[in-house]
Design a protein around this nucleic acid. Structure first.
Lengths: 261, 261
DNA sequence: CATTAGGTATCATTATATAATATCTAACGC
DNA sequence: GCGTTAGATATTATATAATGATACCTAATG
């Protein structure tokens, strides 16, 4: 913690947050030692911080195993987030309508650095658990929503993003070649929407249209996931796209400002 | 902070959490002074803590207005929670099926102290925003899910709860009389499910069945919300209840342990 | 242009977090 | 049944790092 030598920086708070962030899909509950190992904090610090988080109701502790895990308070944070993001309230009723009309899974995604994050999900078909969970972050370049949003940015910006933003393989068919991704974004610039196949789940197809902010830059995207076994690009463009675009346009409100740090 | 004189308690971390918890449905973004006023912390402390939270990515700061609001990290916390709660993964596919079969809004609720908390929500009909947001906490006694869960506890426990747990009015028809609530829980003990009307939203009806843990105590409930204009108790019992109970039973896994502090 | 409310920066002081160590607990092997 | 060990919990002297008062900006407002 020698790097953050700033009197406006409270190290203990930052360390506490590190404990919270240590939990993810592959670290669902942890013992004191595991927490210490994973955060890089020493045993004593971990003990004090975890204890504080427990007393304050942020971590549940199994009395038997003494292992810690996220408490209900973590869901309450999502609750507060939803009220703070003006886009969600605007979008929710329209997304519900859309999912009912299509009978297919509909998602709302926002740009979060070089990733997209799923803000709202309305699953209609049985699917992988990971595809139903809000708060999931994925590399923007590997998603239809990310490409659709990028396509609304000035050309130099999106080209820089295609060149530098992270990519990683999720399925054998995840596109790792940046030229292919560039072509996909180019198409999205031209068409106003993006379609992808098998990027996150084998044989899953996704189509996304941007929700434009007042400056013409996308602040979010409406996305629809369907099975590649029963759908192809043409049918998606014919049957899903029109309603998807109507929904995205209906959400785009001129008074909304993009989120920023 | 003189009360928590415990060497295993890190005051700065606890104060930071107070800032986070200051945000809710009626405090969606706050200035430094508002945060200080609302948390009771002095200006300097608020400044340092808010700054730390901002640097660590937990609070977004509008460059123009200098106001703070929850960041995407708050959604990532929900993401981690979902993976940590074994019930959710178990329930999700079954809840999706149920909502598709019924064509009505389906929720998964857990007991959280004397409140219930909505863990998963699958809205099918346009409704109030508050009725679509996960992480919402409501007094257990005022909800069908809470009553259905209470009814699975030993008699002395649920009677004590009916006598002492908090109630507050949400609509003109919210039940404030504990005798009426007691009768409702008694019915749920007998029937194995609970139906309520107009507790949270005028003319909204809800039906809930408990998900039983290995000890016979409910750890959660599956709940369905419908409009009181088109549904009545008999039709709910005839058309919704059977599928609701099947779903709840299919979720109840003997190996799951209830969450606890 | 003066006023002021609110945000930002500084700094001496000591309260408060630290990390090393010791103690307790329960699971495991022999 | 006993010894061993890994892990959780408690204690304490020490100095770091948080504190809060104050002063300085900045940008609205009349």
């Amino acid at each position: 913690m020698k790097t953050k030598q700033n009197t406006l920086y409270v190290g203990s708070l930052a360390k506490g947050l590190r404990l919270l962030r240590a939990f993810d899909e592959s670290h669902r509950e942890m013992s004191l030692s595991e927490l210490a190992a994973r955060t890089g904090l020493d045993k004593s610090a971990t003990q004090r911080l975890a204890n504080t988080l427990h007393i304050e109701g942020m971590l549940d502790k199994d009395p038997g195993t003494r292992r810690f895990r996220p408490s209900h308070a973590w869901l309450e944070m999502a609750y507060a987030y939803y009220w703070s993001d003006p886009l969600v309230g605007q979008a929710m009723p329209k997304l519900i309508n859309l999912s009912q009309e299509l009978g297919e899974t509909v998602n709302l995604a926002e740009l979060s650095g070089d990733h997209i994050i799923y803000v709202s999900r309305l699953p209609c078909k049985r699917t992988y658990f990971a595809a139903t969970v809000i708060g999931r972050r994925l590399p923007a370049l590997s998603t239809s929503a990310g490409r659709a949003m990028l396509a609304t940015l000035p050309e130099d910006e999106w080209r820089a993003a295609v060149d530098h933003w992270p990519i990683k393989p999720f399925t054998p068919s995840t596109t790792l070649d940046r030229d292919t991704i560039r072509a996909s974004v180019e198409a999205a610039v031209h068409d106003g929407y993006a379609i992808s196949k098998g990027q996150m789940i084998l044989n899953e197809m996704a189509v996304a249209t941007p929700i434009l902010g007042p400056d013409g830059r996308a602040c979010a995207a409406v996305q629809c996931s369907v099975s590649g076994h029963t759908w192809d690009r043409d049918r998606i463009a014919a049957e899903i796209l029109p309603k998807l675009q109507d929904t995205a346009n209906a959400i785009s409100p001129s008074f909304l400002s993009p989120r920023g740090g």
